[in-house]
Amino acid sequence: MVHTERITTEITEPITVFLIGMRVNKLLPFSKWWKVAMAMPPMIASLMKHPEKGMLHAESFFRFGPMTTIMVSYWKSPEHLENFARNPSDPHFQAWQDFYKLVGTDGSVGIWHETYVIEPGRVECVYANMPMFGLLGATKNAIPAKGHRSTFRKRLQGKEAVTGH
């Protein structure tokens, strides 16, 4: 469903934002980067099947030239994220080991990630003509972007928005 009005969302507890991706540095051998890329779908399927593992929402993107992927995911906490990454019974653990056996430091395929913990009152977002996307997809809490939520500064500062800055 596309929300046609301007909406926002708010968080009441810290939320962890995790960015992860892959960059193909050498097109050949195809099998190396393809195996790395194909490791992600089973991880996401497992996380969607088990919401108790803490992933709230995820969005994936792809760029050509050079081929690069990025996934933006939202988690209940950094502990949930770390537990998933390090648990030998979850699919990430084996994929991580397989990457270092298959690619190691040969430079053919790059992987990266960044983690941010965002506190309530320190995040701002707005959506227009959008479905449940990004942080809104994680919170599932669409709020009209009106009144004390009508501008970037007001949304970022909350009800006590400071004016004149």
Rank of each mutant, 00 (worst) to 15 (best):
K146Y: 02
W112L: 01
T151A: 14
M1D: 13
E59L: 01
S77H: 11
T139L: 03
Q97F: 01
V109T: 11
S31E: 09
K49V: 00
N141C: 05
K140V: 00
A95K: 11
M71F: 01
S73I: 00
V2G: 07
A45N: 09
H50I: 00
S73D: 09
K35F: 00
G121E: 11
W96V: 00
K146W: 02
I44H: 13
P78R: 15
C125N: 13
A37L: 08
R86N: 14
V123A: 11
E52K: 11
M48S: 12
N25H: 10
R122H: 12
R86S: 13
L136C: 02
R153A: 14
H3M: 07
A138Q: 09
W96C: 05
Q97W: 01
Y100T: 01
A85F: 02
M22I: 01
G110K: 12
W112F: 09
M48L: 11
M22K: 10
T105K: 14
A45T: 07
V17H: 04
E79F: 01
V117E: 15
G21D: 06
M43K: 12
L47Q: 13
C125E: 05
Y100M: 05
L102H: 10
I7R: 12
K154T: 02
R122C: 03
V117P: 04
T69V: 01
Y116C: 03
E160T: 03
F64Y: 07
G54L: 04
E79M: 04
W75Q: 11
P78E: 14
L135F: 01
V126W: 05
F99E: 09
R155H: 07
Y116T: 02
S89C: 03
K76D: 09
E5T: 07
H148I: 00
K35G: 13
G164T: 04
M55L: 02
F61Q: 13
G65Y: 07
E59A: 13
P78D: 12
W33T: 04
E59K: 11
F61K: 14
R6I: 00
F133P: 02
L27T: 07
G158Y: 08
G104W: 04
R155Q: 12
S77F: 03
H50L: 00
Y74I: 00
V36C: 08
V162D: 15
M43Y: 03
F152S: 09
T163D: 15
R153C: 04
Y100K: 14
K26N: 09
K26D: 08
K159A: 14
V109W: 10
F99L: 04
P88N: 15
G65Q: 13
G54K: 12
A85L: 06
K159P: 06
K159D: 14
I11W: 02
D98C: 02
L135K: 05
N87H: 14
N87W: 06
W96D: 14
E114R: 06
W112S: 09
N83Y: 07
G121D: 09
I111E: 10
R122D: 06
Y116I: 00
P120L: 01
E119G: 03
A145F: 02
R23C: 02
L102S: 15
A39D: 07
N129K: 06
P120H: 07
V36P: 03
L27Q: 10
N87A: 11
W33V: 01
V103Y: 08
E114D: 10
H92D: 08
V36F: 06
A138D: 07
H80C: 09
R86L: 06
E79D: 13
S73A: 08
N141E: 08
E114I: 00
Y127E: 03
A39C: 03
W112N: 06
N83K: 15
